[in-house]
Amino acid sequence: MARIRKKNCGTTTKTTVHNTKTIMKYLEMKYSPEQIANAVRSVKVYTSTIYTWIYKKIVPIDIKRLRGHGKRQLKSSN
């Protein structure tokens, strides 16, 4: 019983086939990861998670094909 419980403990991952395919679909339609995280109701992940998946190649898309080309925008201090 202890081995079974130990195997099932820990956090679960949100990288499901559904999440990956949905994110890929919206990235192909030129959505930014921010737009996907905030507007698409079927994907319940944060923006940083989507960027992490892109950088680790879990979501197979080139960074240069992103809307902002992978560059971070600096906020102006007015």
Rank of each mutant, 00 (worst) to 15 (best):
M1F: 02
A2W: 05
A2I: 10
R3G: 09
R3L: 14
R3E: 14
R3S: 11
I4Y: 04
I4D: 09
R5L: 13
K6F: 05
K7S: 10
K7W: 04
N8G: 05
G10I: 09
T11S: 15
T11F: 08
T11E: 15
T12L: 14
T12D: 06
T13H: 06
T13N: 09
K14E: 14
K14T: 15
K14Q: 14
T15W: 03
V17A: 07
H18V: 10
H18Y: 09
N19I: 04
N19T: 07
N19A: 05
N19Y: 09
N19L: 01
N19D: 09
T22S: 07
T22H: 01
T22P: 00
I23H: 02
I23Q: 00
I23A: 04
I23T: 03
M24L: 14
M24G: 01
M24A: 05
M24F: 00
M24E: 10
M24Y: 01
K25D: 14
K25S: 02
Y26Q: 01
L27D: 03
L27S: 02
L27H: 01
L27R: 00
E28W: 00
E28Q: 09
M29K: 09
M29I: 00
K30C: 01
K30D: 14
K30G: 03
Y31D: 13
Y31W: 14
Y31I: 05
P33S: 09
P33N: 08
E34S: 11
E34C: 10
A37P: 02
N38I: 06
A39Q: 12
V40Q: 05
R41I: 05
R41P: 01
R41Y: 04
V43W: 01
V43G: 01
V45C: 07
V45W: 01
Y46S: 14
Y46W: 05
Y46C: 15
Y46L: 10
T47P: 02
S48Q: 10
T49N: 03
T49V: 11
Y51M: 07
T52K: 11
T52I: 01
W53L: 04
W53Q: 03
I54S: 02
Y55K: 14
K57C: 12
I58T: 15
I58P: 02
V59Q: 00
P60R: 13
P60D: 15
P60Y: 07
I61A: 11
I61H: 06
I61F: 05
D62W: 03
D62T: 12
I63D: 03
I63W: 03
I63P: 05
L66I: 00
G68V: 07
G68N: 13
H69I: 03
G70T: 08
K71I: 08
K71V: 07
R72T: 15
R72A: 15
R72D: 15
Q73C: 04
Q73P: 00
L74R: 08
K75F: 11
K75N: 06
K75L: 13
S77W: 10
S77K: 11
S77L: 14
S77F: 08
S77I: 13
S77Y: 06
N78S: 13
N78Q: 13
